[in-house]
Design a protein around this nucleic acid. Sequence first.
DNA 1: CCGCTATTTTATAATAATTCTAATTTAGGC
DNA 2: GCCTAAATTAGAATTATTATAAAATAGCGG
Lengths: 138, 138
Amino acid sequence: MNERPYAQAINRLREADLRPTRQRLALAKLLFEQGCDRHVTAETLHEEAQKCGARVSLATVYNTLHQFTDAGLLREIMVDSGKAYFDTNIADHHHFLCERSGQLTDIPAHLVTVADLPSAPDGRRISRVDIVIRICDQ
Amino acid sequence: MNERPYAQAINRLREADLRPTRQRLALAKLLFEQGCDRHVTAETLHEEAQKCGARVSLATVYNTLHQFTDAGLLREIMVDSGKAYFDTNIADHHHFLCERSGQLTDIPAHLVTVADLPSAPDGRRISRVDIVIRICDQ
DNA sequence: CCGCTATTTTATAATAATTCTAATTTAGGC
DNA sequence: GCCTAAATTAGAATTATTATAAAATAGCGG
Ligand SMILES: [Mn+2]
Ligand SMILES: [Mn+2]
Ligand SMILES: [Zn+2]
Ligand SMILES: [Zn+2]
């Protein structure tokens, strides 16, 4: 719990041309150094930061989530039409979505086989295929 | 363009235990009687109603979209984390999503084959599998 | 180190989408 | 037609997010 844990985060930020400020480092630490399958909203990440004693404004959390996403460190996933979720897992993968709790669980891409995809219209290409498996009781 | 076109809409509403009010009929007509692959938001449907001279408040458009969804006449799709989209196609199907324009296009389920889905966790079952194929230029 | 400047952070206001509230209107059984 | 429950509505409230503009700071050159 000394300076070391930040080394990884600092490198990620440097590569993305983002100054390793106190706030970005704290958020990067929370996002990337406790497993790589986190699904956060601005609000949940902000609360988490507060609990850790990191003083970061909600505006900065929003800014940082978008900067990290633009830099390819995060990915935004669409599972709620009212709130933005950000995924720390940027590998090719899909999701279980619990309809009761809203909880998201990763599914590595190799566990799903998609065959016979229709091809993209003329002059376009497929940039990504997102699969959400909604699960409910019983 | 006489009373006939409403017959279908009235039946749908009756089956869903929704009184066929002037407002619901006007919205049902817009939603269901011009092809069955419409993707609307409250705002777009409200504008459309205004243009047709149907006087319906935005609050009623929101209420109606949710009532129709609860009744199984519509389906909500998650493609934007800031806005709710409703789909008039309730058959099993998937979507192309244009990253440039946001336009949605239906893909009948039989054109996509999904194999090797992981099974739902204990005591749960899969209620739906949503596939969004994002397309971009080039 | 020191000071300078561009970048970043932040409080706050503004905006966008949606939901709530409570008063008014209306549908449809009697 | 009358009555009542259901539906509609304007407007206020709420929630998520973005914009603004002033204060703080990272990091470079001296
Ligand atoms: Mn994920
Ligand atoms: Mn559709
Ligand atoms: Zn769950
Ligand atoms: Zn398009």
